[in-house]
């Protein structure tokens, strides 16, 4: 998939949340305060319009509402953009030898299309999704929610909500905070057989915070 000649950016705004969010920008973290108006994130795969459409669709799958923040606040589209730009987007994690033949569901997905190709086709189905009203957006998603594209987008939305923040999603660990997941920890020896039936919620820490040094995410390596 040829890259767009012009470098695209996604502009994030900090109006929806009061707190501090940490986004990763090409391996450097950037802080976004409620007072700061905007942050420009360089895109690796999507054009700006594509990113806006995907972000809007992810935000209907996992919306911000009274139960907590959603896909926009977590940076799900940044996560997806980086995954598609990486070896994963080219189907590095799948057996892709021909012939491609239709099978039974128990044999698993047999399609020829790579995740990048599935998204390019899906973007055509979405159209100018971010310009639609929420009710129209939901109606459009209902029309396509049995497609391979939608299924992949839903999976990626969950991944982008709850991945380690080094992958570009789960900004500020807001996904982990919502569900009480503390991130990777070295030991729960003293707690594992305590707190029976009562919430035990250590403050989330990312892998880099736990180790005290940065870790290279898989999408930044070739294998």
């Amino acid at each position: 998939m040829p890259r767009s000649p012009r470098r695209h950016f996604l502009t994030l705004s900090a109006t929806t949340l009061g707190g501090l969010l940490v986004y990763t920008l090409d391996r450097k973290s950037a802080r976004l305060h409620a007072q700061t108006s905007a942050l420009k994130v360089p895109l690796r795969f999507f054009t700006e319009d594509e990113a806006l459409a995907i972000a809007a669709a992810a935000a209907r799958i996992f919306p911000a509402d009274e139960s907590g923040p959603g896909a926009d606040e977590a940076g799900v589209v940044i996560y997806i953009d980086r995954q598609l730009a990486s070896a994963y987007g080219r189907d590095h994690y799948r057996y892709t030898q021909p012939p491609f033949e239709p099978g039974v569901p128990e044999q698993g997905y047999q399609g020829k299309e790579t995740p990048r190709e599935i998204y390019r086709a899906g973007l055509k189905m979405l159209g100018p999704f971010h310009t639609l009203a929420p009710a129209e957006q939901d109606a459009r998603l209902k029309q396509i929610d049995t497609t391979v594209f939608f299924s992949l987008l839903r999976t990626h939305t969950i991944e982008g909500m709850f991945c380690d923040p080094m992958h570009g999603g789960n900004a500020g660990m807001i996904g982990w905070q919502m569900i009480g997941f503390p991130g990777p920890r070295m030991s729960y020896f003293d707690d594992v057989d305590q707190h029976y039936g009562a919430a035990f919620r250590p403050k989330p820490e990312s892998l880099a915070q736990m180790l005290g040094r940065p870790v290279t995410p898989g999408e930044d390596t070739e294998t």
Binding site: D138, I158, I179
Partner: peptide
Amino acid sequence: RPIANFGVVPPSVRTRWGAEWKKAALHNYD
């Protein structure tokens, strides 16, 4: 861990995306 386990909801919840699903999935996650 959350990616593999988020989204499991009781049989009484019918949707798999959107606000109702999110609320049920958050409540049931742990």
